[in-house]
Design a binder for these strands. Structure first.
Length: 518
RNA sequence: GGCGGAGUAGCUCAGUCGGUAGAGCAGUGGAAUCAUAAUCCAUGGGUCGGGGGUUCAAGUCCCUCCUCCGCUACCA
């Protein structure tokens, strides 16, 4: 057995001032597929997601709603928690920044920084945008508003500062020594160029509102939301108990998956905080891209926000998961369109793969009494196809570890297509009439190939893959990657259940009565 | 303005250490009929953004220009 490795990966914690949309689902999906892959590969995985619940926006929204901030976030956090069962996310924990465990962790990190003179008290004055939770320089303002369009107000307050300026060189050498820390490469260049441009100390406390983690030993201040929020990644593995088994096992995190908009916080501030506290920084931050909707930028005001739950209703869960991971080189922006979705769902899933499974299982049912056929001597073509399926895990693993999901799926589909070529060349429906043993051999090879395909596609389309493995009578315990190859081979004579399609085609009849996306 | 990335077949993109370009989809023609009207086979004369240079040879290196995108700065 391979040695078990621990792999801790996280989504950002989602800000509760919003409802879950396709962007949240996408980030979590990218983590989920990897988490599932690693578990099947025998790793000890911890996959974390959760909600970010502090900040002025929440405080204001709660006040406007006439409820306490706590009950506001209790309510708003719920849809994010509900996303996991809806989209099949297998997160091991769901953290909320309002939990006691987290407040203790954030305060401890603060104390560590304070004790090392990495935080000092000063004062801050500037244009502050509540909506963005950010200060802007005078020069950044456009017509008296933030570049984002958010209204700004002049705020002058005492503030604690983190000595970020001291970490410029350390960060640059850290990036240099860890070329895989920031992905994709183009984002890495951006971050490095930003840091090279010079870093100023970072304001890390606020006195203008109250909804946050109190600064230790100074009740007038609460912690800057990002310092609070980023700490969640450590909270969930036991911090401040650095001698706990979870912390030792899972920290530093192997991967923080983030949207490209919050890369800087993760790739600059976060490692600086950690190095300043003498804690190991995470291994990797991946900044993925955004989706557009039918070519249009998605925005709330335009009203073209995509609800992932609607897409699941329309196209199916596995279909959506497949589309999101296949359609776009991971890291790039992508466009969601009905046509593209249907092309993937029908072309790749239903026609190429689903139909392959169906025709093979149907022939086994008909020609072999519904039992796993007995293979005779193998010919070159048999061995070539079988080997390509058995070896598939290698490039697929390599792709997953680089978060190159599209490459992994491309590799898998190469084998799917080879199997379709093979079945046509061998024509078992003809062989059946002249050489039943040879037909049985061909069908056995195909069944084994399908077993391998189903095994490796599990992280992306877990439900359908499970159904295929059910139809091959593969035990639940035999669905890990340790069963790849002859060791897990189907046993001739095993009775198989009646096959039924796992990847339905999308037809206009598939459209539910309500309006679809839009 | 600076830094970075990208401009390759109708569309989306691959193209390793330089050797006269590939995949998928779409289109066209054909085969087959086990299968979810699915599959398979055949078919791509693209000035590899423009121009110049190095080289026996450049999509692939150098210079320059154009366009688009990202990050960043500044003037206002």
């Amino acid at each position: 057995m391979a040695t078990t490795q621990s792999y801790y990966l996280t989504t950002p914690i989602y800000y509760v001032n919003d409802k879950p949309h396709i962007g949240h689902a996408y980030t979590s999906l990218a983590c989920d597929a990897l988490a599932r892959f690693l578990r099947l590969d025998g790793d000890d995985v911890k996959f974390l997601t959760g909600t970010d619940e502090h900040g002025q926006k929440v405080e204001k929204a709660a006040k406007e709603a006439g409820i306490s901030a706590q009950s506001f976030v209790d309510k708003m956090s719920q849809p994010f928690r509900a996303l996991s069962p809806a989209i099949g996310f297998t997160n091991d924990d769901f953290i909320r920044t309002t939990e006691a465990r987290h407040i203790a962790a954030a305060q401890q990190l603060w104390r560590e920084l304070r004790a090392r003179d990495q935080i000092y008290l000063g004062s801050y004055a500037g244009w502050y945008a509540v909506r963005d939770e950010t200060y802007y320089a005078e020069s950044e303002l456009i017509d008296g508003a933030a570049p984002t369009g958010a209204p700004v107000e002049w705020v002058e307050e005492p503030s604690y500062f983190f000595r970020l300026s001291r970490w410029q060189d350390r960060l640059l050498s850290f990036y240099d020594e860890n070329p895989d820390f920031i992905a994709p490469a183009t984002r890495r260049n951006e971050v490095i160029s930003f840091v090279r441009g010079g870093l100023t100390d970072l304001s890390v406390s606020r006195t203008s509102f109250r909804w946050g983690v109190p600064v230790p030993d100074d009740d007038a201040h609460i912690m800057y939301v990002w310092m609070d929020a980023l700490t969640n990644y450590m909270t969930a593995v036991g911090y401040p108990h650095t001698d706990s088994s979870d912390f030792k096992k899972y920290w530093p995190a192997r991967l923080h998956m983030v949207g490209k908009d919050i890369l800087r916080f993760h790739a600059v501030f976060w490692p600086a905080f950690l190095m300043a506290a003498e804690i190991d920084p995470p291994k990797r931050v991946f900044a993925h891209g955004w989706w557009t909707n039918e070519g249009e930028k998605i925005s709330k005001t335009v009203g073209n926000v995509i609800d992932p739950l609607v897409l699941i209703d329309t196209y199916g869960l596995d279909q959506l998961r497949y589309f999101l991971l296949r359609e776009v080189p991971f890291g790039n922006d992508g466009d969601f369109s009905h046509q593209a979705m249907v092309n993937r769902m029908n072309g790749d899933l239903a026609n190429d793969f689903g139909n392959l499974v169906q025709r093979v299982l149907a022939m086994i049912q008909r020609y072999c009494d519904g039992r796993v056929p007995l293979a005779g001597p193998l010919e070159d073509a048999d061995e070539a196809l079988l080997r390509s399926a058995q070896n598939l895990i290698t490039p697929v693993r390599d792709a997953f570890l680089r978060q190159a999901y599209h490459e992994a799926l491309d590799d898998i589909w190469r084998v799917v297509r080879s199997a379709n070529v093979y079945i046509d060349q061998q024509a078992p429906w003809k062989l059946q009439k002249i050489d039943a043993n040879r037909a049985a051999t061909v069908l056995y090879i195909l069944a084994e190939v399908i077993r391998h395909l189903a095994l490796v596609i599990q992280p992306v389309t877990p439900t359908a893959a499970g159904k295929i493995l059910d139809q091959l009578a593969v035990n639940l315990a035999d669905r890990t990657f340790s069963r790849i190859g002859p060791v897990g081979a189907l046993e001739s004579g095993t009775l198989l259940p009646e096959p039924s399609g796992v990847f339905p085609r999308f037809t206009e009849l598939s459209i539910p009565s309500g309006e679809g996306g839009g």
